[in-house]
Nucleic acid binder design. Sequence first.
DNA 1: TTCCAGGCGTATC
DNA 2: GATACGCATGGA
Length: 270
Amino acid sequence: MNVTDFFVQGDDIVLRQSELDLDQTLDCGQAFRWERISPDTYHGYFLNNELTISELQEKGVFKLHNVSEEQFRSVWFDYFDLGSDYSKMIETLSEDETLSKAVKQYRGTRILRQDPWETISSFIISQNNNIPRIKLIISRLCEHYSAYPSFEDMKAETVDTLSYLRAGFRAKYIVDAVGRFNSGEMTTEKIKTLSTDDARDELMKIKGVGPKVADCALLFGFHKLDAFPKDVWVKRVMAQYYPDGLPECTKGIEGVAQQYLFQYIRTVKT
DNA sequence: TTCCAGGCGTATC
DNA sequence: GATACGCATGGA
C-alpha cells in the first residue's frame, strides 16, 4: 500500500510520494500548461490555481511552494490523484511482459484529475497536431483570458475571433463545443454520471470530437480509467505488441496502461 | 520540398 | 463498416 504523507513547512507543503515522477506526470502529453523551469521543478496551473513544485534531493520527496494546507487538501491532493494506490496498479500491469518493461521505465506516471472542459477543448486542439504546438496554442488562449477560459467565458467566440490562436481547422470545432455547453445541451455534470461508453457517445456529438479525443477527455478530465485513447503512437504499440488486443491485467485500468505504453513506444529503441 | 503531428469529417463503396 | 482523402499550421 502506497500512502501519501505530507506536512506543512513554513509557507510550503512537503509531500512524500514515491509513486510520483514530475516529468512522466506533468510533461507526458496529458496536460499542456506545465513547464519545466529547472531540472527538478515545474511551474503550471490547474484552473485558477498556480503551482511551483520541486522534487527535493531525496527522491520521492516534493515541495509545493507557497501552498497552504487547506489549498493542498482541497486542490492539489485531488489534482495529483494522491488518494489512489499506483503501486498496486503497477503491480497488476506488470503481469504483462511489455507493460512490465514500460512500468519499470516510467514508474511514477500518474493520471491527473484535470478539469473536464479544459481537457475537452485542449484535446480538440490536439488532433493531428504535435505536443509543442498544442501547448503554444493553449498558452495563447490562456494569455488572452489571463487563465484557462470556461465555456461561459468563450460564449461569444467565433472562428474569426479565435484566429489569433492559429489553431487552423480546429477553431470551428472549439466554437461548436462552446455552443453545446453554453446552450445546456451538454453538461459536464451529466457526462460524469454516464458509463464510459455512453459518455463517449455524448462527447462525440461535438464536431471534431471522435473516439480518440473523447477518450482523452474521459481519462484525463473525468478520470474514467477504463477509457483507452488510441492515438498514432498507441496504434503502433498495439500493432507491434498486442495484435490480439490488450492483456487481461489491464481490465478496468486500460487508461493507466495506455499512458505507460504511450511513453514507452515514443522512446523505445527498435 | 515533403513529411509528420496524442484525428476527424465527408464521400464513396 | 471500411477505406481514402483533405484539412491549417509549423517544425524537422
